[in-house]
């Protein structure tokens, strides 16, 4: 069953590969980086497919690629900034672990998924709107009819709960 789902998601991935690459390219503006992100997404999605039952694979794949592309883009510009002005500016930040290249273990995925499912409904909703849909605190506050500072508190609570789930192992 799990194996079947994994094959299915890989097939969906391959069938949409060029569109996924295009989605990454729009965010990154660089074909090589877009290709890296798509490769990385494939590896991570394969792991995730072994752990989760993904009901809407196409939407999920596009969301993952967008997420990873945004994370990648942020890391690149961030690390260029971090080392600017250090030494003669030629310093290559090769020792910094790119999270994109981080191997995400299945156990960690399971624990974090379980932790998210345990959250109170409103906390989980606020977190998913922020993390998965990329909504701003203000938009989430309006949707849930709460203050933006409470939105922030709920997101922190969600992350802390996930952290505790990983630490308890």
């Amino acid at each position: 069953m799990i194996v079947e789902e994994q094959i299915e998601l890989s097939e969906v991935f391959m069938a949409h590969r060029s569109q996924l690459r295009w989605a990454a390219l729009k965010i990154l503006g660089n074909p090589e980086r877009a290709e890296d992100v798509v490769q990385d997404a494939y590896l991570k999605v394969s792991e995730a497919a072994a752990v989760f039952h993904v009901k809407q694979p196409v939407a999920y794949l596009f969301q993952m690629v967008r997420n990873l592309a945004i994370d990648h883009h942020r890391r690149i510009s961030f690390e260029l900034n971090l080392f600017e002005g250090e030494d003669d500016g030629l310093h290559v930040p090769s020792h910094i672990g790119m999270p994109e290249a981080t191997v995400i273990g299945r156990e960690h995925l399971k624990l974090v998924a379980k932790a998210i499912s345990e959250l109170p409904e409103r906390t989980r909703r606020a977190f998913e709107l922020h993390r998965l849909e990329g909504q701003t605190h203000r938009a989430i506050a309006a949707e849930l009819a709460i203050s933006t500072s409470l939105v922030n508190i709920l997101i922190h609570e969600a992350i802390d709960h996930c952290r505790a789930a990983l630490q308890s192992t």
Partner: peptide, 10 residues
């Protein structure tokens, strides 16, 4: 890293 993992959960 934790942030990245949470983004992979459907």
């Amino acid at each position: 890293r934790l942030w990245l993992i949470t983004g992979l959960v459907p």
